[in-house]
């Protein structure tokens, strides 16, 4: 296998272009040819989670048709990966033709860190990142995809990195997609506690695999005027 597809996800395209770039850099350093999926923009999760399946199906259909089973599809987000792997079958439960396509594609879909560790069997990517890092496991990555160790394996192999723990039982950061704007008070309270944990950990950088969490945490840190930085895991792995 020397060619992979990359679905950058809408949040990375719009708000975290450096995360998308970093994914490309890391994959290319591992001598892979990367085909970026441009014919789909969003996996459909925001509408799906809010209960609107019809518009979600439109987007899902588009994404599925832009990808081919047989070529790994790398997604730098636990949330979007679980949308495809876990929820697409449910979304197309009544559509046998699409369901068959989804089932054929599913085994080829990988979250970025999962792809590196479980498929490429890579732990060390030659990265150097001399900062104190707290890793925040995003909920879908952890609890839908059960990807717990892979990001930690990759991060702990980075030169110069110092990893610290948040010690908050991997609690949600409060993003939750539309939840963040429908229940801003609850989302904000969860964010507040997450930031307190981050500060208490002594980290100067927070790393996550999901741009949703990063947007929430980065926005909260910026509001507080805090100098702690946020990075997608790919940015850390691309750093030299």
């Amino acid at each position: 296998m020397d060619e992979v597809a990359l679905f950058p996800t809408c949040l990375a395209e719009e708000f975290f272009p450096e995360a998308r770039d970093a994914v490309l850099v890391v994959l290319e350093r591992l001598r892979l040819r990367v085909r970026v999926v441009r014919r789909a923009f969003c996996c459909g999760q925001p509408a799906f989670n809010e209960g609107f399946r019809a518009p979600a199906r439109d987007l899902a259909r588009r994404l599925v048709k832009s990808c081919e089973p047989g070529m790994p599809l790398v997604v730098p987000s636990g949330s979007c990966t679980s949308m495809i792997k876990v929820f697409y079958p449910e979304l197309f439960a009544d559509d046998p033709e699409m369901l068959a396509r989804v089932q054929a594609l599913r085994p080829w879909v990988f979250e970025f860190s999962q792809f590196l560790v479980d498929v490429l069997k890579v732990k060390y990517v030659g990265a150097r990142f001399e900062r104190t890092v707290a890793y925040h496991p995003s909920c879908h990555l952890l609890r839908e995809l059960k990807i717990r160790e892979q990001p930690r394996t990759l991060l702990s192999a980075v030169n110069g990195i110092r990893l610290v723990e948040l010690g908050d039982r991997d609690e949600c950061c409060g993003f939750g997609g539309l939840f963040s704007v429908k229940f801003p008070h609850i989302s904000g309270a969860m964010l507040g506690d997450k930031l307190a944990r981050i500060r208490a950990s002594g980290a100067n950088t927070v790393v996550a695999n999901d741009c949703g969490c990063l947007m929430q945490i980065r926005g909260g840190l910026h509001r507080a005027g805090d100098a702690i930085e946020t990075r997608h895991i790919a940015e850390v792995l691309a750093a030299r």
């Binding site: 719009e14 770039d21 040819r33 904000g188 909260g220």
Partner: peptide, 28 residues
């Protein structure tokens, strides 16, 4: 969008089609 900025700052969208890095296009 005011419910977002009620509790945290909002990053301005920065979409870019091409990478700023030296490797301008992807390998394909």
């Amino acid at each position: 969008f005011n419910n977002w900025t009620a509790v945290r700052d909002f990053p301005v969208p920065r979409p870019r089609v091409r990478r700023d890095t030296a490797q301008e296009a992807d390998s394909s």
